[in-house]
Design a protein around this nucleic acid. Structure first.
Lengths: 195, 195
DNA sequence: ACATAAACATACCAATTAGTATGTCGCAAA
DNA sequence: TTTGCGACATACTAATTGGTATGTTTATGT
């Protein structure tokens, strides 16, 4: 990685941390610069403006931070229920920087920015779509291997699972980690109820 | 209502509209004043600072805006499933100022402010708790009238329903109104699956 | 070694922010 | 009628904001 690429990466990494905790609008560029070796000149060399940096954050940081954990869970065993459960468990409990109090950066950004900025909305939707199709594929795999009746709508279930994830990430901010635990057991029941 | 009370109410009403659409942190006091007849002196006469106004917003506006619709749905018929379904339908489709793109003000505030401000978190938790107990009571009513097995944990179901609401409000920002429709039909299925 | 552009660094700016200081005006009680 | 306070109104400030203008350094191909 060249020095310039490292600088760009530093900006995105630090921006991710701050935006995750404070939100996009409330994270100032000076905030990001203050805790990096990066100067304002460097920032505006790499990004046209704050918005473009936010889009880059979604497209790059999001895909490299969150996506790998999802992919490593899905298709890891032959039992599709176990895989989806493991994906949820990993997302909620095993992720290196996500905490219960601050939730999930993607969920937070959707909440904050989707109504305000169409470019954000589209980038976030694209990201969500990728996840949705991965879950959908896992469900279809379950149907093809006889674990789940073909009468189920795979896409609808996938969206339902993502909806649950969004919900629990938000509720966790009020109820704390214990709610994650009881949610997970209910989630297991939900998966088993699909027959 | 006295003139002073009307002024205070004007502030909270306009603040609610703006915070709902832009978030708490990104709504400035000048924003609120600009579209009201209220001046800065009046604002700071009624509220110590911006934070205290936010807390008042949660405790008052929230309870008077959202709560009535919930209460009128619950206990309206003898079928607890119909009542809970109606509550969800009313919240998603019938509310005077909530839109799909901006979601629900309570959900938004939890997302944004719960991790940043303990006073907000507690006020929001209290508000959520009220809702949770109302749903729980409806479920218990269902159990006592033989519509639902007593083996179910009413509180867990109530929290699950609220989690779903949070999730769908967030997902709606990406997927639009059609998702509300398909969610509602899935929600009906969920309620019927409780036996 | 040298030209040239990429990759920064510094200083600045106008607008916006939450909050304050200090005044004014009307009305109720004495 | 006067006094006093509730309910504002106006003008201001220091800090912060996103963004720009204009430099300087550093790498890189020739």
């Amino acid at each position: 990685m060249s020095k310039a690429q490292a600088t760009r990466s530093d900006i995105l990494t630090r921006a991710m941390e701050l935006i995750y905790k404070q939100g996009f609008q409330s994270t100032s560029i000076d905030d990001i610069l203050a805790t990096t070796q990066v100067t304002k000149g460097a920032f505006y060399y790499h990004f046209k403006n704050k918005e473009e940096m936010g889009i880059a954050l979604i497209e790059e940081a999001m895909h490299t931070e969150i996506w790998p954990g999802i992919q490593s869970s899905l298709s890891s065993s032959s039992n599709f229920r176990d895989n989806i459960y493991k994906m949820m468990d990993k997302l909620l409990f095993k992720h290196p920087f996500m905490t219960v109090e601050h939730g999930c950066p993607a969920v937070n950004l959707i909440q904050e920015m989707a109504p305000l900025n169409e470019a954000f909305r589209l980038a976030l939707k694209k990201s969500l779509n990728k996840w949705e199709r991965a879950i959908e594929a896992e469900i279809i795999r379950g149907q093809e291997t006889g674990q789940l009746a073909r009468s189920h709508d795979a896409k609808q279930i996938a969206l339902h699972i993502i909806t649950l994830y969004h919900g629990v990430r938000n509720m966790g901010k009020l109820l704390g980690k214990p709610y994650y635990v009881s949610f997970l057991s209910e989630f297991r029941q939900y998966l088993d109820s699909l027959n």
